[in-house]
Amino acid sequence: MANFAEWARHILERLHQAALRDPDDRLAALHAELERYVPQDVAPDEGHLGFAVTLLLRLRHGTGELRLMARSPPSPFATAVDVTVAELKLEAFLPADEETAAVFASAVNAERTARSCGLPPAPAR
């Protein structure tokens, strides 16, 4: 992960906001523990607006750097009756540029070709 510190800060901020909405000693303890692992002087990635729910996830890959857009819904499922569903939060990761989209498309095509030939799926890299 090329931007671990920025992502870690993002996750910590979400934990902090959750603790403000619904105070919980275990959540506060988790936040305190995780904060020890995160660099304190994190500069925002280029294009970061501070309030947006879109954040780039930059992954190092054999072909270079993959850039994924993380899209978070603005809130969890507020109408859920089941506590499991009420706690569910979704993150969608979409290619942020054509190069990343091409890497994923190539991987999907290779997988389809292997399956059509009766070959086992390629191991994850």
Rank of each mutant, 00 (worst) to 15 (best):
A101P: 01
P39E: 10
A105F: 11
A124T: 13
Q40D: 04
A43G: 00
R67P: 02
V85M: 05
T54F: 04
P39D: 10
A80D: 05
S75M: 13
A114D: 11
L57W: 03
E111H: 10
K89V: 07
C117Y: 12
P76D: 12
A107N: 08
H61T: 09
L56Q: 03
A114W: 11
P73V: 09
P44Q: 00
Q40E: 08
H48I: 02
E65A: 08
A78M: 08
G118P: 01
A110L: 09
T63M: 13
P123F: 09
T84F: 02
L90W: 11
T84E: 10
A101R: 13
A107T: 04
M69V: 02
L57G: 05
A43N: 01
P74L: 15
H48S: 02
L68Q: 02
E91T: 15
L59D: 01
S72T: 15
E98M: 07
S116G: 03
D82M: 07
E35S: 15
D82G: 06
A96W: 04
A101T: 09
V108G: 03
A78K: 03
G62L: 12
A101I: 13
F104S: 04
A110C: 08
H61P: 09
L119M: 09
A110F: 07
T63V: 15
A105N: 03
L57Q: 08
L68R: 09
S116M: 12
L88P: 01
G62T: 12
G50R: 05
N109L: 12
A80V: 05
S116L: 11
A110T: 11
A43I: 00
A86S: 06
D45F: 00
L66N: 05
F93G: 03
D41E: 08
A92N: 03
G50V: 00
L119H: 13
A86T: 02
R58Q: 05
H48T: 04
A86D: 07
V83E: 03
V53H: 07
L49I: 01
K89R: 15
P95T: 15
Y37C: 06
V38H: 12
S75L: 10
D97W: 14
P95L: 15
D45E: 00
A70L: 10
T113R: 13
A80P: 01
A105K: 11
A52V: 01
E35N: 14
G64A: 06
R58V: 11
C117K: 13
P39H: 10
S116R: 06
E99R: 14
A105D: 04
P121D: 06
P73S: 13
Q40A: 07
R36E: 14
M69D: 01
L59K: 00
V53L: 12
V85R: 04
A114P: 02
G47A: 00
R71I: 08
Q40F: 05
N109K: 12
E98H: 08
T63F: 15
G64V: 08
A122N: 06
L68M: 13
P73T: 11
P120W: 09
E91P: 02
T54M: 11
N109T: 11
K89M: 15
V83D: 00
L59H: 01
P123S: 08
E99Q: 14
T54L: 06
V83C: 00
S72G: 14
P121W: 03
V42C: 07
R36P: 06
R71S: 05
T63I: 15
F51P: 04
